[in-house]
């Protein structure tokens, strides 16, 4: 049984890790299209990515769209989550369902819908159109993350703050928000990644003007299979790796450090 489990574990790891193992060497490949194993190694495609506007503009578009999507999502989701988690009102069940709907409907269906709807509004092939569509897709994800956090929030903390003389606004600023900060950050991160990663809707409505990175990669793999795709994949992979490892690294460093004898006034 144990042997079986071990082999199953190894198999799963290999399957998950295999694409990464392939993509990283391919990014250093000297072949003119995606090819494994690479015939030789050089950094040319890295240079190509960082100098070619055909790649840099979609990257910039993706960053702008994902940032704007995140901002808009959080502006909508934070008040909505507080309302849906903490209050009872008529039509709450319907509101709950509507929030999560985009998660259940296939992206391709959403994409067709956005295409005709945003077309009527004249927003197809514009940043604003993609931002609006991506926000709709990010809202349920951010809502799920944040509502789980808010449900676990001990409301006695707010009561305590009120009893200690903090007005409801000050309670929110000094107590609720800081304690929910990790949840807010993760929620925003998911919204950002959702938009940055989204391909189907982007293919339908982003056009040339608002072309996002995943769309450009998709186009490229269909037409020329430019190894720059492997470069981008590798860069994104290491970006995520750093993002995951940093908090872990910091907390390890902190717990190893001897407890500093801070003066209470300096403790913050």
């Amino acid at each position: 049984m144990n042997t079986f489990k071990r082999w199953a574990g190894i198999l799963v790891t290999v399957f998950i890790a295999a694409p990464l193992v392939i993509v990283v060497p391919m990014s250093f490949s000297s072949a003119s299209s995606l090819q494994f194993p690479p015939p030789g190694y050089w950094l040319g495609y890295y240079r190509a990515y960082f100098t070619d506007l055909d790649w840099l503009i979609p990257t910039w578009n993706s960053i702008v769209i994902a940032s704007a999507t995140t901002l808009l999502t959080m502006l909508l989701v934070v008040p909505a989550t507080f309302a849906l988690v903490r209050h009872k009102f008529r039509g709450k069940g319907v509101a709950d369902l509507m929030m999560l709907m985009p998660l259940a409907v296939p992206h391709i269906v959403m994409a067709v819908g956005y295409y005709s709807y945003l077309g009527d509004l004249g927003l197809v092939h514009s940043h604003m159109g993609v931002i609006l569509a991506h926000t709709c897709l990010s809202v349920p994800i951010a809502f799920l993350v944040l509502s789980a956090n808010l449900k676990g929030f001990d409301r006695n903390l707010e009561r305590a703050a009120l009893s200690l003389g903090a007005s409801p606004t000050k309670t929110f600023i000094h107590i609720t928000l800081p304690i929910l900060r990790p949840g807010l950050i993760i929620s925003a991160l998911f919204a950002f990644i959702q938009s940055f990663d989204e391909t189907v809707v982007a293919i339908f409505i982003s056009g040339r003007d608002a072309e996002t990175l995943p769309r450009k990669m998709f186009d490229s793999i269909r037409q020329e299979a430019d190894p720059v795709i492997a470069v981008i994949s590798t860069l994104l992979f290491f970006l995520v790796l750093v993002g995951i490892a940093t908090p872990y690294f910091i907390s390890t460093l902190r717990s190893r450090a001897p407890t500093p004898s801070r003066s209470p006034a300096g403790a913050h």
Binding site: N156, L157, R159, A160, S163, L164, A166, T171, P178
Partner: peptide, 19 residues
């Protein structure tokens, strides 16, 4: 309102601010 009452409360779970 509660914050205008100047009443100190100790809750069963203490409700200390974790941050």
């Amino acid at each position: 309102a509660p914050h205008e009452r100047n009443i100190g409360i100790v809750f069963q779970n203490y409700a200390l601010f974790p941050h």
